[in-house]
Write a protein that binds this DNA or RNA. Structure first.
Length: 657
RNA sequence: GCCGGGUUAGCUCAGUUGGCAGAGCAACGCUCUUGUAAAGCGUAGGUCGAGGGUUCGAAUCCCUCACCCGGCUCCA
């Protein structure tokens, strides 16, 4: 019998009978592998397990518990969902259904403009379980575009995809369905249900099952807001029940950290309906945290060679004509106010005003780099549907800096900015950083290509020199220049985009900014835009989620609460509080009106770092019972000792720069 | 802006077919004087998001608007 030889990832070789498939290969290696297998990578390309192998090929088995394996599971589960929906909703059109991070979705167009309800999800899920139980095979077939068009004649979205792919105009959405194959590949589950797909898929639906449909949403066809709106169902799918449960548990944990919920519970801030959408008021407890954040930021900026400036909330529209904001972002600006001497707008950015400060007198090269810093409040008319707690808000304060420098200074300045930004972020408990480099959007930019290239190159070289991991985001730049965004990873592994460093050759030109060089000639400075927290509001929201509301001692609204065991200890408790206030600590006192246990519980729910209990023993010798957040109760701690510990703790938290 | 779901006491949430507005926690008062995560009793708290409509009667059905939530689109 003829044999073929296959190379495995570990370099070993294996002989198999001719006509063998990846399934045969997996079985020959071990039954556990065969059970976990969902697809194969053959000579670098993902294939179905059932595809025949040829001699000399490199083959790796993809198991369900790998990222690639889960991707296959999710994509296959999406097909099952599409089949369930087409069965339950005759006449439903289906468009695309890719695997995404943690799950999958599928977009549908239901007859008569019908929309899904949450209740439909249970029915669809039940039908999906039937399909999985039936263990339908995923049968791949390839056909010519004309045949595919005939097959999907009653599926307009599929036809659109086939036409785009066969005419070579496929985009990334299409590619998810079909790749860029010359022939159209399809997967058939039943004589009735067939879907366009590049694959690979699991051999049969029986391999699926650890999934859950999560939510319904509207989604524009091909992301085009002028196009039809489809009905999207999101689901999640995993290799095992344990993995699915773990994922659902993670979601619950994330929900507990929701800053909107915690902001109410901890009395930090609110969004009163009377104020209008996307506008927040800071309550005293949120206010003190914000003050601490800002004080720390100001101190660091002062030490970092920044100069403080202040600019008004309104500006004449001419200013934003000059900057270009009105031509690019008019829709995102609050509407104008007509006044005696012109049209005024609430400012959406601080940079134009900082340019005016630069331009207020003649500048010398000796002044550069000139670093202007402002906690500048801006207003942006975010569309109603995009508002989201503190993360997307209409009035917010940027910790905004604009640095004017020479071309020679540019790279060092960017590198020192990277250093400065991450150093400040470390004080807030972030240690894991990555970067994105956003390049020119060919549809939306000002300035010359040459300037864009120089700016992009300066940013790229700085990242290389600083040795920070980064990805390129094509076309994601601001209209005036390319940028580096710094992402941080939070306590539960989510990433948040925080800081931004933007290189700008264009605004200095638009504002005609100049300095006198050592050669006594006039030169144009380069401008760096830099926001560190980004928006104070948003950064605060990220901090709430990162710490789950339990701010580190240096940042906690209240650092300690003194609890007298009984009324008799009230006087001593007041003395303790007075002493701690003297030391600059933020402390309050809960009188003995309620039982001790109840007051402790309340303090714990408020996530106060230290609960200090004082009773007879303490009054006698000047001590405290110290109940730290997340730690063990310690009795008989001397007051001086406690002060020393807290002061040391705060110093250590801020010494991470 | 678009699609879908919501809004009842400070918070979390019940409220049947359209028929007297409810609970727990919190607040306040009294009793208890307490040693490490919820003492007991009592009191008060509401234009049921706003406005309009249907109806003998609307928290409940219909319309408009505001705000919130999940997505899409957008994000200087």
């Amino acid at each position: 019998m003829a044999e073929i030889t296959i190379s495995l990832p570990d370099g070993s070789q294996r002989s198999l009978p001719a006509g063998a498939t990846a399934t045969t290969l997996a079985e020959s290696i071990g039954s556990r592998l065969a059970k976990a297998a969902v697809a194969a990578v053959v000579d670098g390309e993902e294939r179905d397990l059932g595809a025949p192998l040829a001699g000399g090929q490199q083959v790796a088995i993809v198991t369900a518990d790998s990222e690639a394996g889960r991707h296959v599971l999710r994509h296959s589960t999406a097909h099952v969902m599409a089949q369930a929906v087409t069965q339950l909703f005759p006449g439903a059109k289906f468009s695309i259904g890719p695997a995404i991070a943690d799950g999958f979705y599928y977009d549908f167009d239901l007859p008569g403009g019908r929309t899904f309800t949450e209740a439909d999800l249970a029915d669809i899920e039940a039908r999906m379980r039937d399909i999985i139980k039936a263990d339908q095979p995923f049968v791949r077939d390839e056909l010519a575009a004309a045949d595919a068009l005939r097959l999907f004649a009653d599926q307009p979205y599929k036809c659109e995809i086939i036409q785009r792919v066969s005419s070579g105009a496929a985009d990334s959405d299409d590619a998810a369905e079909l790749g860029n194959a010359e022939t159209i590949s399809i997967y058939r589950n039943t004589p009735e249900f067939v879907d366009l797909c590049r694959g690979p898929h699991v051999p049969s639906t029986g391999r699926l099952g650890h999934f859950k449909l999560m939510k319904v949403a509207g989604a524009y066809w091909r992301g085009n807001e002028k196009g039809p709106m489809l009905q999207r169902i999101y689901g999640t799918a995993w290799e095992s029940k344990a993995a699915l449960d773990q994922h659902l548990h993670r979601l619950e944990e994330a929900e507990k950290r929701d800053h909107r919920k915690l902001a109410v519970e901890l009395d930090l801030l609110s969004f009163p309906q009377q104020l209008g959408g996307g506008l927040a008021v800071w309550h005293p407890k949120g206010g003190i945290v914000r003050k601490l954040m800002e004080d720390y930021s100001r101190e660091r900026h002062l030490n970092g060679g920044y100069q403080f400036v202040f600019t008004p909330h309104l500006a004449n529209g001419n200013l934003f004509e000059t900057s270009g904001h009105l031509s690019w972002y008019k829709d995102g600006m609050y509407p104008p106010m007509e006044m005696d001497n012109g049209t005024y707008y609430p400012k959406p950015m601080n940079c134009p005003m900082h340019c005016l400060i630069f331009d207020s007198r003649q500048r010398s090269y000796r002044e550069l780099p000139l670093r202007l810093f402002e906690l500048g409040t801006v207003y942006r008319y975010e569309r109603a549907g995009t508002l989201h707690g503190l993360m997307r808000i209409r009035g917010f304060t940027q910790d905004d800096s604009h640095i004017y420098c020479t071309e020679e200074q540019l790279q060092d300045e960017i590198i020192s900015l990277l250093d400065f930004v991450m150093s400040v972020l470390r004080a807030f408990g972030f240690t894991d950083f990555t970067a994105n480099l956003s390049t020119k959007d060919p549809q939306k930019y000002v300035g010359t290509d040459e300037n864009w290239e120089r700016a992009t190159e300066a940013l790229r070289m700085s990242l290389e020199k600083y040795d920070l991991d980064y990805k390129i985001k094509e076309g994601d730049a601001a209209f005036y220049g390319p940028k580096i965004d710094i992402d941080v990873k939070d306590a539960i592994g989510r990433t948040w985009q925080l800081s931004t460093i933007q290189c700008d050759f264009n605004l200095p030109e638009r504002f005609g900014l100049e300095y006198v060089g050592a050669d006594n000639n006039r030169h144009r400075p380069i401008m760096l835009h830099r926001a560190l927290f980004g928006s104070i509001e948003r950064f605060f929201g990220v901090l709430i989620e990162h710490y789950a509301g339990a701010f580190p001692t240096w940042l906690a609204p209240l650092q300690a609460r003194v609890l007298p065991v009984a009324e008799a200890h009230q006087h001593y408790a007041e003395e303790v509080m007075a002493r701690l206030h003297q030391e600059g600590l933020r402390v309050d006192l809960a009188e003995a009106n309620d039982q001790l246990g109840k007051r402790i519980r309340a303090a714990k729910m408020e996530k106060i770092p230290y609960v200090l209990v004082v009773g007879d023993d303490d009054v006698a010798v000047g001590t405290l019972g110290v109940n730290p957040r997340g730690g063990e109760v310690e009795r008989g701690v001397a007051l001086d000792e406690f002060v020393r510990r807290v002061v040391d703790e705060v110093r250590a938290q801020l010494a991470v720069v």
